[in-house]
């Protein structure tokens, strides 16, 4: 399930906010080796102080397994600042209808361990559906996102590849980072749903689906992942 957290409701979700910052520490410092600041196991940066919006992917147990941070490109955002090298020194795009998505990550270790690698594309798909729908609802047509090659592969394999590329990929920590454009359209949402088999409302999953996922230990795989079959078997991350 996707929960949108912003300055207006942040106080209602302290556990999810903490879980998200911990996930970011695991992914961006431990796995990707980025030069980020981690305090008490949580990764925070200056942009977290600017009232961004977060999309958080939460399991029925309340674990945070994916997240994304949204800022407007009209104001201070990462492409205009810390990610400027990705644009080869060029000024960033700025538009009322373009959002920036950063700190986009999925808990690959946890998901591979517990539910098989295919869940990674499920969580990624759910996050992307949520982000697209949130953007469209807000009058946004496209987003610029900073991703790593693994995320790039996951996106492409789930019918969800970038609609464009900006600047040049650069080494950041252990891996390369790249700036991509993603259109926020019904067509993209349809493609992701088709590839991942996610059918319901990602913000308000049906109680039945939750019960099925909750009973996952030793139980048959929940119905909502049936269309996983459409994905290549080699989808290990």
């Amino acid at each position: 399930m996707i929960v949108i957290i912003d300055a207006l409701n942040k106080h209602e979700h302290p556990d999810l906010v903490r879980g998200m910052h911990r996930l970011r520490a695991r992914v961006f410092r431990d796995r990707l080796g980025w030069d980020v600041t981690v305090t008490d196991g949580e990764e925070h940066d200056l942009f977290d102080n600017l009232d961004p919006a977060y999309l958080v992917s939460v399991t029925p147990d309340g674990d945070v397994v994916g997240c994304m941070r949204i800022l407007q490109t009209t104001g201070p955002h990462m492409m205009a600042d810390v990610f400027a090298p990705l644009l080869d020194g060029e000024p960033p795009l700025r538009s009322a209808r373009l959002w920036e998505a950063t700190r986009f990550c999925v808990d690959t270790a946890e998901l591979t361990d517990r539910r098989g690698p295919r869940s990674i594309s499920q969580v990624t798909g759910e996050l992307m559906i949520g982000a697209c729908e949130y953007a469209m609802e807000s009058g946004i047509t496209d987003a610029v996102a900073v991703i790593d090659p693994l995320m790039h592969r996951i996106l492409k394999r789930s019918g969800n590849g970038p609609s464009g590329y900006l600047g040049s990929p650069r080494q950041m920590g252990k891996v390369v980072a790249m700036a991509v454009l993603l259109d926020c359209t019904e067509e993209r949402v349809r493609n992701i749903r088709q590839c991942t088999g996610i059918t319901g409302d990602v913000f308000r999953p049906e109680p039945v689906a939750i019960a099925q996922v909750a009973g996952r230990a030793g139980a048959p795989r929940p119905a909502l992942t049936i269309a996983d079959a459409g994905l290549p078997a080699s989808h290990a991350a």
């Binding site: 795009l93 700025r94 047509t141």
Partner: peptide, 17 residues
């Protein structure tokens, strides 16, 4: 060699700037 969609994103940004 970029998509028309990407052209539109750059154009929109240029217009607004």
């Amino acid at each position: 060699s970029i998509s028309p969609r990407t052209v539109e994103v750059h154009l929109r940004s240029a217009r607004e700037k």
